[in-house]
């Protein structure tokens, strides 16, 4: 029996075989979707570029070249994306910027997902007035336009990439809470939860040990779908001067830095913008494909 047959068998002999088989089938479904594969490729490329940035970047991202000779050079073989007004190589800055982008995405996901899960599962499992209060709070956060709320938070906390990450996280958890609540409602009254409860498990134990793991996969898909939005918000904050501060090579801040030269030295602003566009397109394509694979309802 080949590996492929073992994976695709109709009668899996173990839990592990069934789980791997399902994962393999999903991968096959994802592979049929060309656009999703392009997205996956872009995301993998982003991660690789971020990891190997020091090897890939030909110049230092912060220290510039000779200010008399290397300022605002157009794209050439020596400087594929040109140089900026401080004689720094834009290509190297874009490469190092991928680290910041990846960091923002990961940290926002790591902060926002647990908050959303905690609020959503608690509201869904306990019900009653806890549910009403928590969901009302969630709705209030949803009622604010995200970027504007993040702006107000950063204005209060002070500009900087850490505060930008916090502000974005604070504004991104509500959809996850809603989703986690909906998922919790579907499992709350099932027999296995009753069985655990009858064994005397506390609410906290049931929530974290048994309900949350079941909500996790759909919330993770949702977070993946949101990543493009997170990247765009972070870039927007950077553009307004509220995110990463100079000389950090954040893409949004780089666009803002090149704004003054947009007419004559177009490459300074254009190149980081292309990077933002490609990366968020990658996340969007991948998220779209993942949703088709994981949510059979949406496929129809």
């Amino acid at each position: 029996m080949s590996d492929r047959e073992w994976l695709l068998t109709e009668q899996p002999a173990s839990r592990r075989q069934a789980r791997l088989g399902q994962a393999y089938r999903r991968w096959l479904a994802l592979r049929r979707n060309g656009l999703a594969l392009v997205g996956l490729g872009i995301v993998v490329a982003l991660i690789l570029v971020a990891i190997f940035a020091p090897l890939l970047a030909p110049y230092d991202p912060i220290a510039g070249g000779d200010l008399r000779l290397d300022r605002l050079l157009p794209p050439s073989w020596a400087h594929p994306f040109g140089t900026d007004d401080l004689a720094r190589d834009i290509f190297s800055r874009v490469i190092y910027g991928s680290r910041l982008t990846l960091m923002v995405v990961i940290l926002v996901a790591l902060i926002a997902t647990p908050i959303g899960l905690l609020v959503g599962t608690t509201a869904g499992y306990l019900g009653g007035w806890v549910d009403v209060v928590l969901m009302r709070i969630t709705d209030i956060f949803l009622a604010f336009p995200r970027l504007v709320l993040a702006l107000a938070f950063v204005a209060a906390l002070g500009p900087g990439i850490e505060n930008a990450i916090l502000a974005i996280a604070v504004t991104s958890w509500p959809p996850y809470a809603r989703l986690a609540r909906a998922e919790t409602l579907t499992v709350r009254d099932s027999d296995f939860i009753s069985a655990i409860r009858l064994q005397g498990a506390s609410s906290a134990r049931i929530l974290w040990g048994h309900v949350t793991p079941l909500c996790l996969s759909s919330v993770i898909v949702r977070v993946t779908l949101d990543m493009a939005g997170i990247i765009l918000t972070a870039a927007g904050l950077g553009f307004l001067g509220l995110g990463a501060q100079p000389p950090l090579p954040e893409w949004g801040a780089m666009i803002a830095g090149g704004r003054r030269f947009i007419i004559d030295q177009w490459w300074v602003s254009t190149m980081p913008g292309v990077a933002i566009f490609v990366v968020s397109l990658g996340f969007n394509l991948l998220g779209d494909g993942l949703r088709d694979v994981l949510d059979p309802k949406a496929r129809k």
């Binding site: 765009l232 980081p272 913008g273």
Partner: peptide, 11 residues
Amino acid sequence: YSVPIFWLGLV
């Protein structure tokens, strides 16, 4: 969905 609107404005 993917393009940063401020960049599109500049371009």
